[in-house]
Design a protein around this nucleic acid. Structure first.
Lengths: 213, 213
DNA sequence: CAAAAAGATGAACCGGGTTTGCTTTTGAAC
DNA sequence: GTTCAAAAGCAAACCCGGTTCATCTTTTTG
């Protein structure tokens, strides 16, 4: 019934997250205390921690929630896990992001990249994904193979994400970053499929990084 | 000149690490405070932190110092990075561990696996390795390929390590774990070389996990 | 042996996070 | 509208990892 209570809570949560992101962007993650955030957001520290379990979660909320395991588990019959994932990321690269507004996302990523604590925190989030993916893959092959596949896949996806956001953060337009990501996705999945043995090494060539942004 | 001072310091460092490991093994990483460790090791807290920068480092000292980048950079001419790494891990799997005594190592790993904080801490240590490896690889290929290769390789190596130590921790003898690791190394590097596309899927078969431990 | 250099130390402090005990707000039943 | 239980909010005190600082002890060196 979407009560008043719910709305107020949602509003408070947003306010806290927004204030926190702003302060982090202004002065850096480590230089802002949760007390300051709570004060600026006009809640008690204890209340803040009821909404967000840790300081990091103020920024990492909803980052890297790809659910690779789900994508693989839900793939149509006859399609390999890699094909399914490649398809998914093709879609992600072409469609224009949606949901949260770009500006906020960029600031968020900038803050994350600027703080070692947050970067490695984001890293950790993928650990769970890796285990889940390994579990799904293990239904069709032996456990070690499944674990290795999951490890390679999540590592590659993480690399793609990092590059994508790094482009965005360093000023590329959403379109341009998306276009780059397109090629990157193909390369990444080709490497996964065919292995590192073949020197297929970037068949098409492109400007090898920003020629000035 | 190997002064008295040096010896005492080394001795103190060892004592602290040993006491910490014992306490962690007895009661778990989170249930032990650094004050307790300092007290039990008969040093001041501030002294403890001069030897070990963080609580985690009391356990993670020297864990996962493989230096993949170094191995690749130092490989003989004409050998591919993957070949060099495979060779290195073949050696590691056959030679019997050396250095630290097995018992301590096992306790250490048990403690690490039992604590999420430590597990993800150990994870983090590989992050630096990944970047270093990517940098070395980037000397011979484009940056994205290098980054993806580094990501896949470090992820695979981490998986191998985890399995190896998990075997040890769950009671396998060093020999047995080493023998398993042998096969695992070949599979892991075959997957890296040839890709996940080919269903080479474990050509030899083995008991597919502990039949009760 | 004396003075400098290096360590060790206790005490106070900081910041993230939790506990406790209390007040206020909300939603629903009467 | 009144009543009441549940939910949310709060201040203050606390815990723990980690740092700072000023002081004291030990080792080295000349």
């Amino acid at each position: 019934m979407a009560g008043l209570r719910e709305r107020k809570k949602e509003q408070t949560r947003r306010r806290i997250a927004a204030v926190a992101l702003r302060l982090f962007a202004e002065r850096g993650f480590d230089a802002v205390t949760v007390n300051e955030i709570a004060e600026a957001a006009e809640v008690a520290k204890v209340t803040l921690f009821k909404y967000f379990p840790t300081k990091e979660s103020l920024v990492l909320r909803g980052v890297g929630q790809e659910n690779l395991a789900g994508i693989v588990a839900a793939r149509p019959a006859g399609r390999s896990p890699l094909e399914a994932l490649r398809e998914h990321y093709r879609g992600f690269a072409t469609e224009p992001a949606e949901a949260v507004d770009r500006e906020t996302l960029i600031v968020q990523m900038r803050v994350i990249f600027a703080s070692p604590a947050l970067s490695s925190g984001a890293n950790d989030l993928l650990h769970g994904q890796r285990l889940a993916l390994a579990r799904v893959l293990a239904e069709e092959r032996d456990e070690l193979t499944a674990a290795l596949m999951a490890a390679q896949i999540t590592a590659s996806v993480l690399t793609l994400q990092e590059r994508f956001f790094r482009h965005l953060v360093s000023g590329a337009s959403t379109d341009e970053a998306g276009r780059r990501l397109c090629g990157d996705v193909e390369l990444a999945f080709d490497l996964l499929e065919n292995g590192l043995g073949q020197p297929l090494d970037r068949p098409f060539d492109r400007p090898l990084d920003q020629p000035g942004e």
